[in-house]
Amino acid sequence: MENKVYDIVAKNFNMATDSINSKTGPSDIPLWDSLGHMTLISSIEQSFNIEFEFEEMFEVVSVQSIIDILNRKIEQK
């Protein structure tokens, strides 16, 4: 799952996948602005066929936080 998240983040921001790691966040990617944030969430939702709660969208502050939310959601299923 982690690699899939890395791929989505990389594709969303037009970057190479190997430049993404769990600590990557908005301060590392200039295109990860508020709009980039929303399009990223939307891509994650579509790829994993899940829906983020309103508060969860803004829990995301790094790639690791996306993975944490996904793990939590998979456990809840």
């Binding site: 966040g25 908005p26 301060s27 200039p30 508020s34 803004f58 502050v61």
Partner: peptide
């Protein structure tokens, strides 16, 4: 700031 997301929290 670089952008808002980087300082949002």
């Amino acid at each position: 700031a670089k952008n808002f997301s980087s300082i949002r929290p």
